[in-house]
Design a protein around this nucleic acid. Structure first.
Length: 570
RNA sequence: UGGGGUGUCGUCCAACGGCAGGACACAUGACUCUGGAUCAUGGUAUCGGGGUUCGAAUCCCUGCACCCCAGCCA
């Protein structure tokens, strides 16, 4: 963490308040031990990043520790690929769990013993009802449930049945172990919840050792207890599971961590549900979990996001209990702030328009010194070659410029960044279409380096790349995944798939970038001056093939706003 | 019409009986060899109705709205 980040005032949100109070009262040994407990059934997204930053951040802040624990209790959905990806993502975000890497599956034996303890205490029983029957017996939100006919089996019978469940005497779904609580409880979770189900499935870590697997409600508190977690932070939907979390721990009489719930992160113009993200991947709407449009950590990483930006964002969105949807522009702001300080500047032309500087000597090449990062003097300078033919951005020229357009136009003079002033003298157009093919300009030799002796001003400075020195590149530009900020707020009864933005990806070929970029590797982040921040994508074929850039985020564009406002007027 | 939660600028988060504040967004201006960055300025909010109090976003009563829960998912 750099100084800038730690210097920011941190809000004492309700979880910090709980911790402060605990410490003041010397509860929990005044310790802070948290955990991030992902289920390895998919890739992590930015919502998880918030949780990671919260849990690891709190531990860091209070000189405690945070465990990375895989909640691998459902072998049907979980895979080693996900375990590996999650480890990579958490590490990339900049967190370290030391030796505290755990797996729920490592506790299966202990959990089994505790289940036996509950059976012995008459607090759990083996039920032979079918899934459908269990659902029917559970009652509804407004009606109490009905006791299972198997609820009053003897302890001995339950012990025997449970052991046989483990041994594999039954098929999937034939038996379950249930807690014996209260079928009439107003909280559905307390109506004799299932503790173990039979799953003859190969587990990524335990293989075929087990055929019974613990349910979340049974397992999670035990995992927390075993690890001595002090503050078990989870999302709001687990709020009404807390009585059950507490019940199991109390019945067992073991160490009792405190579960605390906060609101999950939502972002405008995107989706956070693992189910939907999986759908996008499966249906090929995106190229994979790490598609730069995805809100997954791997997607953001490939897009060019930095861990520092994500950590800053996580702090800034705050921690509270009310449902909310954070403006994606806050995320972008955090990103730009970080990249502005750290990304070296280069010149790259996305939509090239050829310019011939008619009074510049043919064959002559000059090199101009360019500043690598005006925000960071230590970044130094580099040389950029200049010659008679260059490319400029098509957008930087208009045949009939509106009032507030300051860039190049017929007869108008602008500055070429770090080079010369040029004036447009001729426009070559396609006779049929009117398309602008090429510009002829003259330069003022007196303006070398970007200033003139007479001190005259130009309204605009534009970027450029020397034609003969330019490197060809592909640029991928991204837009939001969705066409609406919040699908759940839409009144039309549509599916989220109806709000998928068909234009979320634009691929630009034959972009022209300055030659210094040829030395860079995959993952290199830079700013194309006046355009935005870009990162070299792994799809690049370096050094011999195509260089592929992802547009991480555009620069703030005042002109675009003006132009939009103007066009809106007419 | 059971249970659990939540209502503060457009958005997110503060204020914990004492001047409703910050960030993002938006708008205007200054500056600028990036229409970037930076700086300055501005507008906009306590779900409704009662009550307690010198004083209420905060406490009480009442109503309303929204979210979550009926997986052998987590």
């Amino acid at each position: 963490m750099d100084n800038n980040e730690t210097a920011k005032k941190k809000v004492v949100h309700f979880i910090r308040q709980i911790i402060n109070k605990d410490i003041a009262e010397n509860k929990k040994n005044s310790q802070v031990i948290t955990r991030f407990p992902p289920e390895p059934n998919g890739y992590l997204h930015i919502g998880h990043a918030k949780s990671i930053c919260l849990n690891f951040g709190l531990a860091e802040e209070y000189n405690g520790r945070c465990h990375l624990r895989f909640d691998d209790t459902n072998p049907i959905k979980e895979e080693q690929e996900y375990i590996d990806a999650i480890i990579e993502d958490v590490r990339w975000l900049g967190f370290d769990w030391g030796e505290h890497l755990y797996f729920a599956s490592d506790y299966f034996e202990q959990m089994y013993a505790w289940a036996v303890q509950l059976i012995r205490a008459g607090k759990a029983y083996v039920d032979g009802l079918t899934t459908e029957q269990i659902r029917e017996y559970r009652g509804t939100l407004t009606e109490p449930g009905v006791n299972s006919p198997y609820r009053n089996r003897s302890i001995e019978e339950n012990l025997d049945l449970f052991e046989r469940m483990r041994k594999g005497d039954y098929k999937d779904g034939e038996m379950v172990l249930r807690a014996r609580i209260d079928m009439g409880h107003p909280n559905m979770n307390m109506r004799d919840p299932v503790m173990y189900r039979i799953l003859h499935a190969k587990h990524p870590r335990t293989g075929d050792k087990w055929c019974i697997y613990p349910m979340y409600d049974w397992a999670h508190g035990l995992e927390d207890s075993i690890e001595g977690i002090t503050h078990s932070i989870c999302t709001l939907e687990f709020e009404d599971h807390r009585p059950l979390y507490d019940w199991f721990l109390d019945q067992l009489g073991i160490y009792h961590p405190q579960q605390i719930e906060f609101a999950r992160l939502n972002l405008t113009f995107t989706i956070m549900s693992k189910r939907y993200l999986l759908k996008l991947v499966k249906e090929g709407i995106v190229s994979g979990w790490d598609d730069p449009r995805m809100p997954t950590i791997s997607g953001l990483r490939r897009r060019g996001y930095t861990p520092a930006a994500l950590r800053d964002f996580s702090e800034r969105v705050g921690v509270a209990k009310r449902d909310s949807i954070v403006d994606s522009q806050l995320l972008e702001h955090c990103l730009r702030e970080d990249l502005n300080r750290h990304a070296p500047r280069v010149m790259g032309v996305l939509n090239p328009l050829k310019v011939v500087i008619t009074n510049y000597p043919e064959g002559k090449v000059e090199e101009f010194e360019a500043i690598n990062n005006p925000e960071d003097e230590a970044a130094g300078v580099r040389k950029v070659p200049f010659s008679r033919e260059i490319y400029i951005e098509r957008e930087d020229f208009m045949l009939n410029p509106p009032k507030k357009f300051f860039r190049l136009a017929p007869g108008r003079e602008v500055r070429l960044r770090y080079a010369y002033y040029i004036t447009c003298t001729d426009v070559l157009q396609d006779e049929k279409t009117g398309d602008i093919l090429e510009l002829h300009c003259t330069y003022d030799p007196e303006s070398r380096g970007g200033y003139t002796p007479d001190g005259r001003k130009v309204r605009s400075t534009i970027h450029w790349v020397s034609l003969e020195h330019a490197i060809d590149a592909e640029v991928r530009q991204y837009d939001y995944l969705l066409t609406v900020p919040d699908p759940s707020a839409e009144t039309a009864k549509k599916e989220f798939m109806d709000y998928i933005n068909p234009n979320s990806l634009t691929v630009l070929h034959h972009c022209k970038v300055e030659p210094s970029l040829v030395r860079q590797k995959v993952g290199f982040k830079c700013q194309f001056e006046r355009k935005g921040y870009f990162m070299i994508d792994p799809d690049s074929k370096i050094p011999e093939g195509t260089l592929v850039f992802n547009q991480t985020v555009s620069l703030r564009d005042t002109w675009a706003k003006i132009a939009q406002a103007e066009s809106g007027k007419h």
